[in-house]
Amino acid sequence: MAFLITRIGLVFTAMLLCLNLLVPNAKAQRQGQTDRDWLVAQRETNQDVYSPTYVDEPPPPLNEPLPSERLRQDTQRLSPDFRVSALQPDFTGDLWIGSWLGLSRINPNTGKVLARIRLPNYTVGALAQDRVGRIWVGTYEGLLRVDPRSNEVTTQNFTLPSNRVLSMLIDRRGYLWVGSDRGLALISPDQGLLMTTVQKLPGVSANALTLDKEGQLWVGTLNGIVRVDTASALPRGRIEGIPGTVVQTLTLGTDGMLWAGTPNSLLVINPETFQVIRSVTPLRGRNVTSIRFAQDRSVWVGTDNGLLKLKPDSGEVLGQIANLPSDSILSLSPDTGNKLWVGTSEGLAWVSLTSGRVRPHFAFIREPSPQ
């Protein structure tokens, strides 16, 4: 009997504990409901406080595309660039075409493409041929040497002041001068070795190179023209304050004068006195990008707005060539395969020296869009 009373007592105690736990929860629920009712009442009476307001303007544009669009932009293929930046005839009579799509070799008489050379970098800035016929290729990623017998790259990875090659020239000793946007380098083509550099070049960038009658090197820079002694590789004189300042192209005339093209003029310079003799009148205010003398002693002048043929002694315009792939002229090779070959910003063309007929080379121009 005592055991039964004890069990009943324990059960009753447990029931009391449960009631004590439930009562606070019920109170909390009633309190929560009271709080929610109060908030609703406050919102109904204070709509201006709890109702959001919006400025009547569109959202600002995004500064960057969404990740998916960025990925598409990074992986999509760029359209081809048909700039023909360098032309180099070789000893066999073939013509080498340096462009922003690579290096090619053609027969200039027929226009037939003889080879397309695979290059580590496709952007060609300059071409030169050494004494034994090897083709040196200056790209925007460094210097290469191509064997014309196999049409293969045989030497590369030279240590230059800058890998962005802008100009090249073989001097009378057979050495190769390489101009970059950070100075000059002198290379032995036979050994394939870098001999010296001229990194503190006045005017910094070696945009254009030519030799005078004495065999000395003249360099067109961002600030005039510098004469460099080929034996010591030291600057020995400078022409400053010329119209246009930047010298983009440089060549030696048949009379021994230097012809320099700037963004607003064509200048004739005496290399002995370092004086500008004259500014060619028809080219004043025009951006001169390429100059080459022909066998008939006339001079071809390429600009960013057309190609002209001049009489060198007077500057008289003998003719202007139309119907080229582009009026922006980048490179010239006269008297090659009885033609004048013209590299433009939109491809390659040739001009007949007998009839004056102009024809594009369809292997090096953009295909016309279908109508």
Results as ranks from 00 to 15, higher is better:
S167H: 00
Q199L: 11
L194H: 00
L194R: 05
I170N: 10
N163S: 07
S188K: 10
N163W: 01
V178W: 04
L201A: 01
V198W: 11
S180C: 05
A185D: 07
T197F: 06
K200E: 15
L193G: 04
V178N: 06
D181H: 11
M168I: 01
V198R: 08
R172V: 14
M195V: 15
R172P: 10
L193I: 13
R164A: 10
K200A: 14
V198G: 04
R164F: 08
S188T: 12
V165M: 08
G192D: 08
V165H: 05
R172A: 14
V165G: 08
N163I: 02
G183M: 06
L184Q: 05
L184F: 05
A185I: 07
L176R: 04
L201I: 00
M168Q: 05
T197N: 09
I187L: 14
V165C: 09
L194A: 01
N163P: 00
G192H: 10
L193M: 13
D181Y: 05
V165P: 05
N163A: 06
G174I: 06
S188M: 10
R173V: 08
S180N: 02
T196H: 11
S188P: 06
L184V: 02
K200H: 14
R164D: 11
Q191D: 13
G174D: 09
S167C: 00
S167A: 04
D171H: 03
L193H: 11
G192L: 09
D181M: 09
S180G: 05
Q199T: 15
L166P: 02
L186Q: 09
L166N: 11
S162G: 12
M168W: 01
G183I: 03
Q191K: 14
G174K: 04
R182D: 12
V198T: 07
M168G: 00
R164V: 12
L186S: 03
D171G: 02
S188C: 12
D190G: 13
G192Q: 08
R182S: 14
N163F: 03
L169F: 02
D190T: 15
D171T: 01
R172N: 14
T196D: 14
M195S: 12
P189R: 11
V178P: 03
D190N: 14
T196M: 13
Q191E: 14
K200Q: 15
N163G: 04
L169G: 03
I187A: 08
L166W: 04
I187H: 06
R173D: 15
T196C: 09
G179S: 12
S180Y: 01
